[in-house]
């Protein structure tokens, strides 16, 4: 039977070794405030057309923290409100926002041409990029993140209903999904988590 003190010393040594190991491997989880997506969703992957008419893929945004948002330009209320909020978030990040990109993916690719998207995203924020493409390519991305979008056909009296996912998916510089922001979430929490992903691990 070892004395208690010796046992504690061994325990402490193991603990320190464990912490060092975690630090070396960067395994210490970032203290996110939003819903943590780490390991729960696949890496960012797509091939679409950007608002300058160029074909782009997810690899083109590696090195940037990406905020992925599905919307459409003919949405007069919720989509522009979300984009206006993201503009405020970018302003709060200051210079660090240069390493972030808002990817506005149109779920209405038939109407949302690169030119329309270009004018649209630039009306909100200089870090925003509009993406459109073939309906199948957009659908694949929507499904990849289990997002949803439906537009019910107009009924006889002309009434219709549009529903779409209002969540924002945040990816780290390696394209890994990290947090999910919903309109019910606090804007400051999004700023906090983006600072973690943009910075050296500690919010400024």
């Amino acid at each position: 039977m070892k004395p208690l003190r010796a046992r504690l010393a061994v325990l402490l040594a193991l603990l320190v070794a464990g912490l060092l190991l975690a630090a070396c491997h960067g395994a210490a989880p970032l203290p996110f405030r939003l819903t943590n997506l780490t390991g729960h969703m696949p890496q960012l992957e797509f091939t679409l057309t950007n608002d300058e008419g160029k074909t782009v893929s997810a690899e083109d945004y590696r090195g940037k923290v990406v905020l992925l948002f599905f919307g459409y330009t003919h949405c007069p209320d919720v989509c522009p409100l979300t984009m206006a909020h993201l503009h405020v978030v970018m302003q709060k990040l200051g210079k660090r926002a240069d390493d972030a990109r808002i990817l506005f993916v149109s779920v209405d690719p038939g109407r949302d041409t690169p030119a329309i998207l270009h004018a649209y995203v630039n009306a909100f924020d200089s870090h925003a990029v509009g993406l459109t493409g073939k309906p199948r390519a957009v659908e694949a991305l929507v499904k990849r993140y289990r997002s949803a979008f439906t537009r019910e056909p107009a009924s006889k009296d002309g009434n219709y209903e549009v529903s779409h996912s209002s969540a924002i998916y945040v990816f780290d510089r390696d394209g890994n999904p990290r947090v999910l922001f919903t309109p019910a979430g606090k804007q400051d929490d999004l700023v906090h988590d983006l600072q973690l992903l943009l910075g050296d691990g500690s919010p400024t």
Binding site: C75, D77, V78, S163, H164, S165, S166, T182, P183, A184
Partner: peptide, 13 residues
């Protein structure tokens, strides 16, 4: 009218 429930936004006349 726009409303959001369970992460889905709806717009209705």
């Amino acid at each position: 009218h726009s409303s959001t429930q369970g992460g889905v936004s709806r717009m209705t006349m």
